[in-house]
């Protein structure tokens, strides 16, 4: 397949995954920010949201201070923010359009129809600011588009390199997102040995679970109240949790192996991905907290970036 096609498929899936993640972050941050609490925390919550979405720097270039409405605008509609929901859906569609022949008709029509819906909301928003209900509906729409695109790809695409490259994009992005949301909250994700805070932290923990749609999963797995160290365990080391770092790397290794066996040779991307997976499989939460959660996540985010780079180098650039 054309290297450019593989590149577009990879980024198409990444952007759709990111649109979903940004929508989830905004959803949960709105919940948190609406809790009766100290005034100052509202700005903190939005700063954390921008940071988790990888958009804090860009925001600070455009705005003096962090404020709820401006942050929402920036995360949803601002085209200067390459990770805003409209930017993600727009970029996702441009990439899909560039490789229409590599997508099934169903998948193309799903993204195209979703994009048209998105454009309608965008036009409405440009005419007059959306009210809260409409904003929430827009977040739901973004998540639905990502879900539909993912589902149609899963249901209709041939299991060949086109599918594998798109899945790689999805899981590399997802691993990054999970690590980021954990990292902006690392200060409240304490090991079992330390005393835990009050009810405010409880809402914070719940918000993390909500952001990765894992509230129910948590209760199914642990059959316990929400404990910060278990949240970290769930999102880092649990293989059955589809957004955990371990699960993402299981998939990344699986799809890279599929590509290397179809092409009859492997390279740095495969070796590096297996290393990261091995490290996740052979670690415990005790080790993670021992080395420092923040340090662990920072290292992981960097490793994950190198995988993206290795895939690009090996397949997408020539």
């Amino acid at each position: 397949m054309l290297a450019r096609t593989a590149d577009s498929l990879f980024w198409f899936a990444r952007y759709m995954e990111r649109a979903d993640f940004v929508a989830r972050i905004v959803h949960t941050t709105r919940r948190l920010a609406s809790l009766p609490s100290r005034e100052s925390s509202v700005a903190n919550e939005w700063e954390a949201a921008l940071s988790a979405a990888g958009a804090l720097e860009a925001y600070q270039e455009a705005h003096e201070e962090v404020e709820a409405n401006a942050a929402i605008e920036f995360l949803l509609f601002d085209t200067r923010n390459t990770s805003s929901i409209v930017s993600c859906i727009e970029s996702g569609r441009i990439n899909a359009r560039a490789v229409r022949t590599a997508l099934t008709i169903e998948t193309w029509q799903t993204i195209n129809a979703g994009w048209q819906e998105m454009k309608k909301v965008q036009a409405k928003h440009q005419a007059r600011s959306l009210d809260t209900e409409e904003l929430v509906a827009f977040l739901d729409l973004a998540m639905k588009i990502a879900l539909d695109v993912d589902g149609s790809a899963y249901r209709t695409m041939l299991r060949n390199d086109a599918y594998w490259f798109s899945r790689l994009g999805l899981y590399v992005e997802r691993a990054d997102n999970t690590a980021r949301i954990l990292d902006v909250k690392y200060n409240i994700l304490l090991p079992e040995s330390e005393s835990v805070g009050g009810s405010l932290d409880y809402f914070q923990w719940n918000a993390i679970l909500r952001a990765v749609s894992a509230v129910t999963s948590y209760h199914w797995i642990y059959r316990d109240g929400v404990k910060p160290w278990l949240i970290a365990d769930l999102l880092i080391l649990r293989p059955e949790m589809p957004r955990s770092l371990l699960a993402c790397y299981g998939e990344i290794v699986r799809f890279l192996d599929a590509i290397s066996s179809a092409y009859g040779r492997q390279g740095a991307a495969q070796r590096r991905a297996r290393q990261i997976l091995g490290r996740l499989e052979n670690t415990t939460m005790k080790d993670v907290f021992g080395a420092g959660l923040h340090e662990f996540l920072t290292d992981f985010i960097e490793d994950n970036n190198t995988i993206g780079g290795a895939i690009a180098e090996q397949y997408l650039l020539d």
């Binding site: 290297a3 397949y315 997408l316």
Partner: peptide, 8 residues
């Protein structure tokens, strides 16, 4: 003439 593919 060649095209650039994921396999060279």
């Amino acid at each position: 003439v060649y095209m650039r593919t994921t396999q060279g």
